[in-house]
């Protein structure tokens, strides 16, 4: 089972997790820029975070043969802090990077006027940089937040096929299914979505434009739930090809629209990417 996790916050995971993910079949992932648990107090703090998403994390992932890509944005939570607003001015330089395959996570947290403004400004950046967008839907007042997000997207001029609406559930899927946007699902041990519930949604809505991720962030989460979902699909009677579509071909197709996805010449062999040495610092325990 080859797995592309389209939304996972590796910054909050240990190197052991990379090893376990590789063993479970994860060969590629996208790490969206979001928060760090502790709110940041300046744009400079984001610079180091974004640098890590295009520097250290891809290096760490490559030790285990995992291709790491990122999405870059000012997230809706911190969009509300005026001290972080300058981050918007930094974004263009990161949106030019090879490893950046979308603008994200954008969207709503508390649906404030500040969030409106930052969301719209970043969708305009996606249009300008010819990148897809990843839209986070809020955990509170989710259904209305999703509808409002769809309205902002429609107004942005960004093609729906270049947008994924993420963290969907049974209530919000019907709002998105016919818009042409991609549908993202974060499989969590307890809250957002579980593997059995995900299988039910795939039965009901089919496997097209469906993206399954583990999110694996600062909450109670598990980076192997993509694999668990694939196994639940098989147990429920889906075929290997369905699993491959959901866990590999769909994310490749969605992020491939950036023109920047780099899965290596031989993506089937799972060998370590170029530019790394055997027995490098991480495998040896670092310094």
């Amino acid at each position: 089972m080859r797995i592309f996790d389209p939304h996972i916050h590796m910054t909050s995971r240990t190197t052991d997790d990379y090893e376990r993910m590789a063993a479970a079949g994860v060969r590629a992932l996208v790490e969206p820029a979001f928060w760090l648990g502790q709110p940041r107090t300046s744009a400079a703090s984001f610079v180091d975070y974004f640098d890590s998403l295009v520097g250290w994390e891809p290096f760490r992932a490559a030790q285990f043969g995992i291709r790491h890509h990122a999405t870059i944005a000012l997230n809706p939570k911190e969009a509300n802090d005026p001290r972080c607003r300058e981050v918007l001015d930094l974004l263009p330089r990161y949106l030019d990077k090879d490893g950046v395959v979308a603008v994200g996570e954008v969207g709503y947290d508390s649906m404030t006027p500040e969030e409106d403004e930052v969301f719209a400004a970043q969708l305009a950046l996606a249009v300008e940089h010819e990148l897809p967008a990843m839209v986070h839907t809020p955990h509170r007042d989710k259904a209305r937040g999703t509808e409002r997000s769809l309205a902002v997207i429609a107004e942005s001029g960004l093609e729906p096929g270049r947008v994924v609406i993420d963290h969907l559930n049974e209530v919000t899927v019907p709002l998105v299914r016919d818009t042409g946007c991609w549908l993202g699902f974060s499989i969590y041990p307890e809250t957002k979505m579980s593997p059995p519930r995900m299988v039910e949604l795939l039965r009901k809505y089919g496997t097209e434009r469906m993206l399954v991720n583990s999110a694996a962030d600062w909450g109670r989460s598990d980076p192997l739930l993509t694999r668990a979902t694939g196994e639940a699909m098989l147990a429920a009677g889906f075929g290997d090809d369905d699993v491959d579509q959901v866990l590999w071909r769909n994310p490749v197709e969605f992020y491939g629209q950036s023109g920047r996805l780099d899965l290596g010449a031989d993506e089937a062999s799972g060998e370590t990417g170029p530019g790394t040495f055997e027995g490098n610092s991480i495998l040896r325990g670092g310094s």
């Binding site: 520097g55 290096f59 790394t276 040495f277 610092s281």
Partner: peptide, 9 residues
């Protein structure tokens, strides 16, 4: 200062 072997080398 980094631990990125590509940069150190």
């Amino acid at each position: 200062r980094t631990n990125d072997t590509r940069l150190v080398s």
